[in-house]
């Protein structure tokens, strides 16, 4: 079970995000449909192009897992209601870890 994902309007800028199946690392779709583990490289999609991109991602479920729409601004910054969650997904926990305090 994952958290509830907001339904985005067709005109809302969005990207496709998922997890790399082998490593579990978070990935985002580039404009050319390939996958990147760097959120600065994510592609921005709207309307039918976004639906096509998601459909394409869903055919790649060997390489990646559970693709879904993530809201972004027109210039590719994380946006919308899930900004905090998606920022943590992109940047890691907001607390240091693996260290002795």
């Amino acid at each position: 079970m994952t958290s509830v994902r907001p339904k985005l309007k067709p005109e809302t800028p969005k990207t496709i995000t998922a997890w790399d199946t082998a490593s579990g690392q978070v990935v985002w779709m580039r404009a050319d449909g390939s996958w990147s583990d760097d959120p600065t490289e994510l592609g921005v999609f709207t309307g039918a192009a976004a639906e096509d991109a998601l459909a394409k991602a869903q055919t790649q479920e060997g390489e990646i897992t559970d693709p879904y729409f993530m809201e972004v601004t027109a210039d590719g910054q994380i946006a919308g209601r899930e900004t905090l969650r998606e920022s943590i997904r992109a940047n890691g926990p907001t607390v240091p870890y693996g260290v002795i305090i």
Partner: peptide
Amino acid sequence: QNGVYLQLHAY
């Protein structure tokens, strides 16, 4: 069944 979840960042 083998204790593996997919969480926010990773398994």
